[in-house]
Design a protein around this nucleic acid. Structure first.
Length: 460
RNA sequence: GGCUGAAUGGCAGAGUGGUGAUGUAGCGGCCUGCAAAGCCGUGUACCCCGGUUCGAUUCCGGGUUCAGCCUCCA
């Protein structure tokens, strides 16, 4: 039985869906004005893995991840670049898709955009005004935080605490500093949409309330996102959605931990971020995915080359085991699968799930000579790995990688040529020449492995 | 200041009231012409101080340190 840690209760809870066999999942996605960084990669990979596992557990999942394509930063960046907002956001959505495809992330079923839901947003704001949860002032509309009884239930804050914090900027238009904006009047030269309160644009929080309820209904199963969205974004979403619909909003709230650099949160404002595409220049995409899965999704994840190197070695071990073995299609992974599922049922414990893969790998390596058994074990390994979105590549392709862009590295053909020369030398027991050739290749980052069938190679 | 959460072996990272995580690195052995890969073996790890208990890394209390949120952020 699957248990999910619910931020609302701060406990693991048995997962019960609203409709039997069906899961509705909404995840807060990207604000598109730049390249995605490794922090974004984590959200994408984590929830992709959640979806894969739910599907592998026979749930019919509807996965919605929104795209924020209108906001202050987008407007500012478009102005800086001297391009239209749409040009900027479309370009960045393209980058995002490239990055997520590389990471083996299956596209969400729906990716609603804020700008395509203005009507629903306006409707929701209207309803909030009707219910006296919101008020208009000078073309803006604000949410009346005080009017929502359960405000703070997600983040564990209460209104008193928030007041004593008082770091909230003072804004004359607001009746109360805690109130937040639902609709923002457009300043001159800013884009906007017509509304009952004049030309303007939606506040950040309202789009997710409108889009999630519109796509999945007033009450749905899981709402996810990064930990930093817990407050105020998700807290405000609850206030808006439950205020407007009068129904319970999301049942389970899942928040993934941060990616850190030197024990500090990776973030745009700190400027300590690495974009996915930069990292992809130095490591295979699957290594990044593996690295993300080495820690449980709620834990912090320290980004460093050492850790990526480690991930690469580990993944190499898995692929090495699969090399040269024809995997059977298996419908059930037996005991290994049970252990794997027990781990994943425990709030998606991917580190333990991975450890099952390594136990399996050890048995596979020890039984390479027994063709049937090896094929069976390889089949299980592939089956379970695929649930995590791993080991989908051809082993040789992963191990040999691609020749670096730099001229220095040898092409596959060149490597083969040296290997053939070395085979001749070895046949003549010319160990000196044989070792010379091997050293030469080692210097080029090519590692040779002699075995019964001949010589295989991989890139370091 | 308020509110979260975390501290595990060289590094990473699970977990548990009393025997094995797992990966990586190291060491020894087997295999190999030698290697590599693989297999086997190998680690007095659980922040500190109290308490509960026959027994605590695991439960409780206190402390220390670290991170996050309270302002845009996945």
């Amino acid at each position: 039985m699957l248990e999910i840690y619910n931020t609302l209760s701060r406990k693991k809870e048995p997962f019960k869906t609203i409709e039997p066999g069906k899961v509705s999942l909404y995840v807060c996605g990207m604000t598109v004005y730049d390249y995605c960084h490794v922090g974004h990669a984590r959200v994408m990979v984590v929830f992709d893995t959640v979806v894969r596992y739910l599907r592998a557990s026979d749930y019919d999942v509807t996965y919605v991840r929104n795209i924020t394509d209108i906001d202050d930063k987008i407007i500012a960046r478009a102005n800086e670049n001297g391009e239209s907002i749409t040009a900027l956001t479309e370009r960045c959505i393209g980058y995002m898709n490239e990055d997520s495809d590389a990471l083996g992330v299956i596209r969400p079923d729906r990716e609603p955009k804020a700008t395509e839901h203005i009507e629903q947003i306006v409707t929701m704001i209207n309803r909030l005004i009707e219910k006296d949860h919101a008020y208009a002032a000078n073309g803006d509309v604000y949410y009346k935080v005080n009017s929502f009884e359960h405000y703070g239930k997600l983040s564990g804050k209460n209104i008193e605490d928030l007041r004593s914090g008082e770091r909230v900027a003072i804004d004359e238009a607001k009746n109360d500093p805690l109130d937040f904006v639902l609709w923002k009047a457009a300043k001159p030269n800013e884009p906007g949409w017509d509304s009952p309160w004049g030309v303007g644009r939606p506040g950040w929080h309202i789009e997710c309330s409108a889009m999630s309820t519109c796509e999945l209904g007033n009450n749905f199963d899981i709402h996810g996102g990064g930990q930093d969205l817990q407050f105020p974004h998700h807290e405000n979403e609850i206030a808006q959605s439950e205020g407007a619909t009068g129904e319970h909003f999301a049942n389970y709230w899942m928040h993934n931990g941060f990616v850190r650099v030197d024990d500090e949160k990776m973030s745009k404002s700190l400027g300590n971020f690495f974009t996915i595409r930069d990292v992809l220049k130095r490591y295979p995409a699957e290594v990044i995915r593996y690295f993300i899965l080495t820690s449980q999704y709620r834990s912090p994840l320290n980004y460093s080359d050492d850790h990526l190197d480690n991930a690469k070695s580990a993944l190499t071990r898995l692929y090495t085991a699969l090399r040269g073995i024809k995997a059977n299609e298996v419908a059930d992974g037996g005991e290994y699968e049970q252990r794997f599922r027990t781990a994943m049922d425990d709030d998606f414990n991917t580190p333990v799930a991975l450890s099952v893969l390594f136990d399996l790998t050890r048995e596979l390596n020890a039984n390479r000579n027994d063709q049937n058994k090896a094929a069976e074990l390889a089949g299980i390994l592939k089956r379970l790995s695929n649930i995590l979105g791993l080991l989908a590549n051809d082993p040789e392709q992963f191990l040999r990688g691609e020749a670096e862009q730099g001229d220095a590295s040898l092409s596959t053909e060149q490597v083969q040529k040296y290997i053939e020369q070395r085979i001749l030398a070895r046949q003549q027991k010319d160990w000196e020449e044989s070792d010379r050739l091997r050293d030469l290749l080692t210097e080029q980052g090519i590692i040779l492995e002699d075995n019964a069938e001949g010589t295989s190679w991989r890139r370091k």
